[in-house]
Every structure is written in C-alpha cells, then in structure tokens.
Simulated assay, not measured.
Amino acid sequence: MVRIGYTMMTEQRDPCGLVDDLVLAERAGFDFSVISDHYFPWLASQGHSPNAWAVLGAAAQATRRIPLMTYVTCPTMRYHPAVVAQQAATVQLLSEGRFRLGLGSGENLNEHVIGCGWPVAAVRQEMLAEAAGIIRELFGGGVISRRGKHFQVESARLWDLPDPPPPIGIAVSGPRSCALAGRLADYVIAVEPKQSLVEGFTRNGGDGRSAVGQLPLCFDHDRDAALARAHEQFRWFAGGWKVNADLPSPDAFAAASAFVRPEDVAKAIPCGDRVSEVAEGVGKFIAAGFTEVALVQVGGDSQSAFIDWARDRLLPALREL
C-alpha cells in the first residue's frame, strides 16, 4: 500500500503555522511528512520562506508519531555538508528516529545568496556526490578531515550522533542523477511520476529501496477559487526543472510563467474537491513504481480545511489504491 505524506511548504506559510498544520496532519493520519528548504519563495504571491531546520526542530517536539523529511536540502553552497550532517543528526535525535535526510543539487533561486555564482548541472552533481559522501562519513562517527575537489573538511566530528543515523535520499530528474542516487542513496526522490526515474535508480543499485514522489493539489469546495489560487501561487512549475534550477529570483519566475494560463495549471494540478482527480494523480506515481507520495496543498491559509477533508474523504480513498 502506498504511503501518503503531508508537505510543509515553507514558501507559503509562516513557521508557527507550519508546525500547527503538521500537528493537525499527524492527527488526521498522514503516514509521513516532508518540508521544503528554501531561502526564497518561487513567487512573491506565496509570501514566505522561514528556515526549514528551525521549523523541523519545533516540529520534532510538537509531534510524536509522524516521520519528518527534507524535500530537499542542498548540501553544497548555502550549507556546507558538515553543517548539514550536524543539523540532520540533531533533528534525528529530537524526533527520536523519525527523520530522513533528502538531498538535492539545489536551485539558483536559493543558493545564489552566498554570492559564489551558480555552477553548471554537471558540476552541481559532482558537488552533491562529494557532499553526500562527507555526510555519510560523519554519520559513521569519528573525526574526519578531507581535501576534496569541491569541499574541505578539517577535523570534523558529530558529538551528538543518533543511532541509527538518518537515511539519506537523493532527488533525481534524469539518468545522471539516477546513477548517483543508486550508488549513494537509501531511497530516491522525484517530483514527476516517471517510471524511467525509478528504473534508473533500481538499475544503478537502488533495487528494493523506497521511491518518494510529490503531487501538488489545490483543495477547495469552490473549484474556480481553487484554480485561481493554484494559478496565482503554483504556475511556476510549468518551466520544468531544467529551467527552474537556473532562475535566480521570484521576479524571474513570475516573468517565465507570465503566459501560463489557468487551464494549463488545471491540466497538471487537481483543483477542487473531487477525490477521484487526486487519486488519479497518486495512481500515476504508483504505476511508475513509487512507494510514497507526499501531497502539497496549494495555499498557506487553506491547510486546516484541506487536512479535515483529507482525514474524512481523501485518505480513506487513497488507502484503497
């Protein structure tokens, strides 16, 4: 049976609201949760972007059952991998073993703030592989020093080390990242229901491991209101990840998505209150081989209504898939 998750989307909610919503999601019966890790929202209309790791610390203490996960953290520029290892170990301890560390190669939108430029995709993948190795080594205990191609580590050690350490997942979008994830990851992450991504992960060493997808939706009993909100806040998705990884600001995303129509959004994001449309979207991930799907409710102020609907109607239907 597929596991259904809840997304704390930092781009559309203040930190206290994110934690409050997660408490409701846990009570409603979601199987796990994920959180985005951004410095900027995709679009100014979303209006938020608190620090994900501070939110995770609060969330770990406010909940008791629901698993936590970054979806995803970039451990190469804004954060040094040694710092990510310490953050992840701390959240694993605070949550008493409920945390998974999802990693990705990042977006210019969030990483440009440190002023070091934005590498090409091949270099970003190299950096991610090296960073994941550092994190894994630190999770193993002991003191490490390393002079790598992209990172230096000098006498680093995690003094508060969880047992077991957090599982590491890697986000994929094509053959190169699938090969990387198959070699280095405990599970794979993707936002598109493509069978080729799961197969690429499996073929490169990920056989039998979990695959975590994510599906945006916009619940509202008024479908027109849902569609308008999805278009206002989520039309940025239309550029695809090769474009989205390189755009530097919310203004750039607004310009790039200026000609995305509400009907274009409706084709990609279930809008309204029809359970069957969400089930169809989740079903595409299941058919592609995903074992877990995190749902993203579009609209920060609509979370409690969505969670109530999910508890009463959506989750029971999805359990039957």
Results as ranks from 00 to 15, higher is better:
Lys149Gln: 15
Ala185Ser: 03
Ser304Trp: 04
Leu318Arg: 11
Asp251Ala: 15
Glu280Ile: 06
Thr291Gly: 13
Ala85Trp: 02
Phe306Cys: 07
Ala252Asn: 11
Ala131Arg: 13
Arg223Gly: 03
Ala28His: 11
Phe253Ser: 12
Ile269Cys: 14
Pro167Gln: 00
Gly106Arg: 12
Gly133Ala: 02
Ala58Glu: 01
Gln92Gly: 07
Leu22Glu: 11
Asp163Met: 05
Glu232Cys: 12
Trp236Lys: 02
Ser33Trp: 10
Phe253His: 15
Ser173Ala: 13
Glu11Ile: 08
Leu318His: 05
Arg313Lys: 14
Val153Met: 00
Ala59Tyr: 01
Pro67Cys: 01
Leu314Gly: 08
Ala255Asn: 12
Pro164Cys: 05
Gly283Trp: 05
Pro164Glu: 06
His150Leu: 06
Tyr6Asn: 10
Leu128Lys: 09
Ala256Thr: 11
Gly300Trp: 01
Gly283Val: 09
Ala256Ser: 14
Ala256Tyr: 13
Ala255Trp: 08
Tyr79Phe: 15
Arg146Gly: 05
Gly29Arg: 12
Glu154Gln: 14
Gly142Met: 12
Pro175Lys: 00
Ala60Arg: 01
Gly200His: 00
His231Asn: 12
Arg147Trp: 00
Gly57Trp: 09
Tyr39Val: 15
Phe151Ser: 10
Ala255Glu: 15
Lys242Met: 13
Ser36Lys: 04
Asp20Arg: 15
Met1Glu: 13
Pro165Ala: 13
Gln152Gly: 15
Val293Ser: 10
Met9Tyr: 14
